[in-house]
Every structure is written in structure tokens, then in C-alpha cells.
Design a binder for these strands. Structure first.
Length: 200
DNA sequence: CCCTGATTCGC
DNA sequence: GCGAATCAGG
């Protein structure tokens, strides 16, 4: 494989979108993440624009070596919830399921007429504000991966409405053995007691 | 161990 | 220019 204009285009696009080198390599195919990183450097586009997080701009001209941030950083809410069960089967629970019970319920798929998208997230008012907040935050930085891209170690939390185009999976690194990333594990696995107390 | 990007250096 | 090997780190 060689770096055709088209492939370079894809590389630039994905890199600026904050995609990781390995993801880009996967997308392109025929190259390793090393190749991607190497190319990125050769192209001189090392510093990612940080499109959504211009929090701290360093006006530094030189001196300090630019210290890049690891793209992934789940806030880890830690709602003090010992995972009740690692959930052997990898089933994507709906938010409703999550709210109702920790253990997977029979998946009840509501048939949604495509067209008018429903609110991206069903009512999640019974989840702790902290957890919910961090979830929202994480989802903003979600990798937005497709079903095909799910691996054993990517968060399988569904985001959006499956009946529309607005649907993808979180895709952030999942916690060891669990199907979700830190933040999503936080809302997915809650102790019964915690939920009961919050019930309105 | 999983992952991330950075750098080196033979090709 | 390319990218595997390696390094440094979360």
C-alpha cells in the first residue's frame, strides 16, 4: 500500500477528528498504526487541533517541548458500585433496561418509525447526576464506532437511536472484562440500593 | 495487559 | 519517504 492522495486525505481527516492512529490504520487497511504515526509526523500535522477542547492554549513558541494529551481520559465517576455481574453475554442494554435492572432483561425493542428522531437519550432521570454528566461528557468524546468496529476492548454502549442514522457505539477503551468504558460502567452497573433510593 | 503517540534508523 | 522496532507513558 502506498500513500495515495486519497489515503492521505482520509488520514488527515481522521487525525483532525481525533481518531487514534490505530483506528486510522484500521480504516485505511494495509498499514499499521506505526505507519500512520510516521506519516502524520512527516506531514507535519502532529498537534491535533483539539477541536472540542481548546481549554488551555499554550502560546509557547519553543522552549518547552509540547506535551500532548492522551486522547482518551474517562473521568471515572466511581459511584461506588461493585459490579453485580460481569454480564457474560455482550448485550447492549437500552437505557430503560439500565434504569430498571442491573441484570439484563429480555430485550424489548420498541419499533420506532424512522424519520423523526426521538431524543437521543431516553429519560435517564434516575441516574445520578454525576454519572449522567460524565456519561454525557464521554459521549461527546466518543469514538462513534460502528457495530463492525466493536472489539473485546471497546465500549459497547449504544448512543443514539438505532432506527436512525444517529447511532453509534461509544468505542472508548473498555474496562478490563467489562463491556463498557469507565463512565458507562458507572451507569450500567449500579447497586440495587442506590437505585431504590433515587426512585421518585 | 490493554492502549496511546514519539522517535529512531535501516531500507 | 517509509514504517518496524523501540521508547515512553496512561
Amino acid at each position: 500500500m502506498s500513500w495515495t492522495d486519497e489515503r492521505v486525505e482520509t488520514l488527515k481527516k481522521m487525525w483532525s477528528e481525533g481518531q487514534s492512529a490505530s483506528q486510522i490504520a484500521k480504516e485505511l487497511g494495509g498499514v499499521t498504526r506505526n505507519a500512520v504515526i510516521g506519516k502524520v509526523h512527516r506531514l507535519g500535522l502532529s498537534n491535533r487541533a483539539a477541536a472540542t477542547t481548546p481549554e488551555k492554549e499554550e502560546p509557547v513558541a519553543k522552549a518547552a517541548p509540547p506535551k500532548r494529551e492522551e486522547a482518551s481520559a474517562a473521568p471515572a465517576p466511581k459511584p461506588a458500585a461493585p459490579a453485580p455481574r460481569p454480564a457474560a453475554a455482550v448485550v447492549n442494554p437500552t437505557m430503560a433496561q439500565v434504569v430498571n435492572n442491573v441484570t439484563p432483561l429480555p430485550l424489548r425493542k420498541s419499533i420506532v418509525p424512522a424519520g423523526q428522531p426521538l431524543p437521543p437519550q431516553p429519560s435517564a432521570n434516575e441516574i445520578s447526576p454525576e454519572a449522567l454528566a460524565s456519561v454525557r461528557e464521554v459521549e461527546k468524546g466518543a469514538k462513534k464506532i460502528s457495530l463492525m468496529e466493536l472489539t473485546e476492548r471497546t465500549c459497547k454502549w449504544p448512543i443514539g437511536d438505532p432506527a436512525t442514522e444517529e447511532f453509534w457505539f461509544c468505542g472508548l477503551p473498555s474496562t478490563a472484562g467489562k463491556p463498557y468504558c469507565e463512565a458507562h460502567v458507572g451507569v450500567a452497573f449500579q447497586p440495587m440500593s442506590a437505585r431504590r433510593d433515587r426512585r421518585r
